[in-house]
Structures are given as structure tokens and as C-alpha cells.
Simulated assay, not measured.
Amino acid sequence: MPLPDHTPPWKRELRELWRACSQADSQRLILEILHYRNVLAQIEAMRLPIDRAWKADVGGQLVGLECLRVLLQQERVRVGIMDDIGGSSPPPIEPMYEDL
């Protein structure tokens, strides 16, 4: 079932929620959101060398990998991890919940 349209919380907002909410379930949900965002960054970091190797060996783009790149990029822009769709390299991978 598709989710209704909504504005995703940015990292700053999640930190504010973490400090404001003392309930364990709310904090678990915040950690899960941050975990998911960290996984997105890790997937992108793994996708890049595959893409580079494919281009070097075969030339051109592997369609499935390009679709994955576009999907990851759209999601990163949606949640505020990446501000510019034109950006060519992802931000460095960092644990997002260490300093909550």
C-alpha cells in the first residue's frame, strides 16, 4: 500500500524530536529512520565502484544500475541528505545517530 504524501523530517528535526521525546517507542522510530538513511548512503557507496567498473570494462551504462542510481538520488534529495540533484558524488558516509 502506498504511503500518503508527506514531508520527511530532516536530520535536525529528528534530533529535536529525540530530545523532546522520552518514550522508548518514539526513539526507536527515530533510530529506524536514521538507520534507513545510513543504509541508503552505504548502498550508494557500494553502487559507485560497480558503476565505474562496468563503464571501464563495457562502456556505457548498465540500465538496472542507472535506475538504482536515480532512485537512490531521488530518495536522498527527498529526505534532505543531498540538496542538489546535479551533485556527482555522495556525501561521506557517517553514522547519523551517534550524536542524538
Rank of each mutant, 00 (worst) to 15 (best):
A53E: 09
A20T: 06
L72Q: 08
E66G: 10
G64E: 09
K11Q: 12
V58Y: 14
R19K: 13
A24I: 01
L40Y: 03
P95N: 03
V70Y: 14
I33C: 05
G60R: 07
P91Y: 08
E75F: 15
R12M: 06
I50P: 00
P90H: 00
S26V: 04
L68W: 09
L65H: 06
N38A: 12
E98H: 09
Q23L: 09
T7F: 11
L34D: 02
I30H: 03
P90C: 00
G59N: 11
P49H: 15
L48P: 00
A56C: 05
V77I: 15
Q23H: 12
L31Q: 03
L71V: 09
I93M: 13
E94G: 08
L68F: 07
R19M: 10
H35C: 04
D84E: 13
E66I: 13
K55E: 07
V77N: 09
A24K: 06
D57T: 08
G80D: 03
E94N: 12
P9M: 10
A45W: 12
W10P: 00
V63H: 10
L17R: 04
W54N: 03
I81Y: 01
D57M: 10
Q42E: 00
K11A: 03
G86E: 11
D84F: 10
G86D: 12
L29P: 01
E32L: 05
E66D: 14
M46Y: 14
I43H: 05
R69T: 01
L29S: 09
R69Y: 08
C67W: 15
L68T: 10
Y36E: 11
P4A: 14
K55R: 08
L65V: 08
L48A: 09
G86N: 09
R69V: 00
V79G: 07
M1W: 09
E94K: 13
L29E: 05
I50A: 06
T7H: 07
I81W: 02
R78D: 07
P95W: 04
Q73P: 05
W18G: 01
V77D: 09
R47D: 07
V77A: 15
G64H: 06
C21W: 06
V39R: 07
D57E: 14
K55W: 03
R15C: 02
Q42W: 00
H6W: 12
L71F: 11
Q23R: 14
A20D: 14
S89D: 13
P8W: 06
